[in-house]
Amino acid sequence: MRHTAIAYARAFAEAVKEASAEKHREIIKRFVRVIGKNGDLSRGREIVNAAIKEITKSKGGKIVDLEFARELPGALKEGLTKRLSSDDYVNIIPNPSLLAGVRITFNGEEELDSSLKRKLKKLFV
């Protein structure tokens, strides 16, 4: 039977939650082995993303994608991440197509877009 990425993610999140911190590394290794045994390595990225989402959700945090038009300096990146909750999973992504400004996405569902790209689109469409 082919398992969905969500099913893998939920099982992994529960295993991590139940185990002590020292065993986490071992659980991750076993998790990868199970995925490989089931022939689902090609869906690895999908499963990992689902697992990140599930673990973040179980901690009460959010997945926050911060997109900037240009690459941010390392210190700024660090500063931004620190200012958000430690339960949140933060991705800082350079996206030149935004032209300028920032776009923030929460849990891949809600978006706050103040990029120049959107402003221009709104003006001309």
């Binding site: 999908e46 996405t105 929460f106 849990n107 891949g108 569902e109 809600e110 978006e111 706050l112 877009d113 103040s114 402003k119 709104k122 003006l123």
Partner: peptide, 26 residues
């Protein structure tokens, strides 16, 4: 022109092909 940035619902295409798309979110 007035621009008020607000939280909007959005989805992201996770799979596309044969005229079918899978969307996460929304």
């Amino acid at each position: 022109y007035r621009d008020e940035t607000a939280l909007e619902n959005v989805g992201i295409v996770t799979e596309a092909g044969d005229g079918i798309v899978r969307i996460s979110g929304l």
